[in-house]
Amino acid sequence: MEPILDVQDLQVSFRVRGGEVQAVRGVSFQVGKGEAVAIVGESGCGKSVTAQTIMRLIPSPPSIIKGGEVRFLGQDLLKKSEKEMQRIRGKDIGMIFQDPMTSLNPTMTIGRQIAEGLIKHQNMSAKAADSRAVEMLQLVGIPNPESRIKQYPHEFSGGMRQRAMIAIALACNPALLIADEPTTALDVTIQAQILRLMKDLQKNLGTSIILITHDLGVVADMCDKVIVMYAGKVVEAGTKWEIFKNPQHPYTRGLLRSVPRLDQRKDEPLIPIFGTPPDLIKPPAGCGFCARCDDAMRICAERDPGTTTISDSHQVRCWLTHPLAKEVAQ
């Protein structure tokens, strides 16, 4: 089955005073219909830039899309004009941003912000759009939706604002939903409610989801596939079970060791990943994780390892998994 989204060799840079920051360096992945795919990694690894490039929301300048393809339903979004993208955003692809307070318009009521997309993309009348806005607030679990649509963002709590963002993103029944850290700064109870809501919507509406997050617990609960990014590249990709049960890249193993587990002994310390990510104005010639890796070899600093296929669904970018690695070890 053809994927709903197919990103191939995406390269995005930013021109700054000190040079050119190579934020995304050849990222490739696919999202199937009704599938939930997580993109994980440290801050600055290129997760959000990748997502915003798919939506064509990064300003140019300073950004430059150096190459690659972003095929959505068979169409390359990188070749679309801004006018064509405006017809796609909200209608075919929805996005939940990290901070709803800065993403919602403080001068417009919540109902009007939901109705705006319906009037533009589905040619609804104002009355029909208002009725749909009430339905959407009800769908995302906001009580008294008839009165809530008349309120402004500052009158909503943090969790309710995030629910309102989800309602706006899903109002036109998009085929793809991009959620950029949707549970950041929310308490644990509200986080669980938001994630349960997204899972229900995925199941009931068949929506494909890209979830950008730091929280591996959220990934384990919600996603089908996991993409691990580091220094602007995908270092490992596989199903949820392959990544959690059989991680192959030292960075992936480091991420998993640095978070608490229910089966962990109380006296067993968490193991942090020491060091800092490389400078992407002058990225390393070899593996980006080399300077922080306990298993690094000389070749890791000199040459990029390329992608090794572990299984049909599991790929890793590491010299330790290279076909020649076993011969060297012997």
Rank of each mutant, 00 (worst) to 15 (best):
R17N: 15
I64W: 11
D99H: 12
D180R: 01
E268G: 09
P153N: 06
S13V: 06
N144V: 13
M136E: 04
S63H: 11
D99E: 15
V7P: 03
N246K: 13
A128P: 03
D304M: 11
K80N: 01
A128E: 15
S81T: 14
E20N: 13
A231K: 04
P283A: 10
K245Y: 08
C287W: 04
P62H: 11
Q113I: 01
P106L: 09
F156N: 01
V49Y: 00
K240I: 14
D224T: 08
T307D: 11
I96T: 05
W319L: 03
N144C: 08
T109Y: 07
Q330I: 10
L177F: 08
M1P: 11
I114K: 06
A36Y: 00
F244A: 02
L10I: 02
I273Y: 11
E20L: 14
E82V: 08
V218A: 10
Q22T: 04
V226L: 13
S81N: 06
K282D: 15
C45A: 13
A169I: 01
A291M: 14
E42R: 08
P283W: 09
A301F: 15
M165K: 06
A185G: 09
F274D: 15
I281M: 12
E155N: 08
M101C: 04
Q75I: 12
M297H: 09
I96N: 01
V40S: 00
S208T: 01
Q315S: 15
Q138A: 14
L176P: 02
M165P: 02
K240A: 10
E135F: 04
T207P: 11
P278D: 11
D6L: 00
V218N: 08
K83N: 13
Q151S: 13
S48E: 09
Q202G: 07
G117I: 07
I4K: 00
F156Y: 11
R257L: 15
K199R: 15
Q264H: 04
A133I: 13
F14Q: 11
D224I: 05
Y152F: 14
L195E: 05
P145T: 07
V27R: 02
T252F: 02
R56Q: 10
